[in-house]
Amino acid sequence: MSRYGMMIQWSDEDQLFLVAIPEFANRVVMLCTHGKTREEAIHREEVIEMYLEAWQAEGESIPEPKTLQIA
């Protein structure tokens, strides 16, 4: 499982949970994954891996996962 953060929101229009990856926000126009349940939406890791592989193949830098720093 990736270490990227996820923002999960319910869409009344789509009747799905939609997931966005904050670290991808300036590179990806659309939301990353979706699902009928939160669990389904969260566990669609193949979409995240697809983006990472494409960026690597194109020679683009890979966004670093942000981590929570508790002082």
Rank of each mutant, 00 (worst) to 15 (best):
S11M: 09
S11K: 12
D12C: 05
D12V: 01
E13I: 15
D14Q: 14
D14M: 14
Q15M: 10
L16C: 12
L18Y: 07
V19W: 02
V19D: 05
A20Q: 10
A20H: 11
I21W: 02
I21T: 09
E23D: 13
F24M: 03
F24Q: 02
F24H: 03
A25D: 06
A25C: 03
N26H: 11
M30L: 13
M30C: 14
L31V: 13
L31P: 03
C32K: 00
C32F: 00
C32P: 00
T33Y: 00
T33K: 00
T33D: 02
H34I: 02
H34S: 14
H34A: 14
K36F: 06
T37C: 09
T37M: 04
R38D: 13
E39S: 15
A41D: 09
I42P: 00
I42S: 00
I42G: 00
H43Y: 08
R44L: 03
R44M: 06
R44A: 01
R44T: 01
R44Q: 12
E45A: 08
E45M: 10
E46A: 03
V47D: 05
V47C: 06
V47F: 09
I48G: 00
I48K: 00
E49W: 06
M50E: 11
M50Q: 10
M50K: 07
M50T: 08
Y51P: 01
Y51V: 04
L52A: 02
L52I: 05
W55Q: 06
W55E: 05
Q56D: 13
A57D: 15
A57L: 13
E58Y: 15
E58N: 15
G59H: 11
G59F: 06
S61L: 11
S61V: 10
I62L: 14
I62T: 08
I62A: 12
P63I: 03
P63A: 05
P63Y: 05
P63H: 04
E64W: 02
P65D: 09
P65T: 05
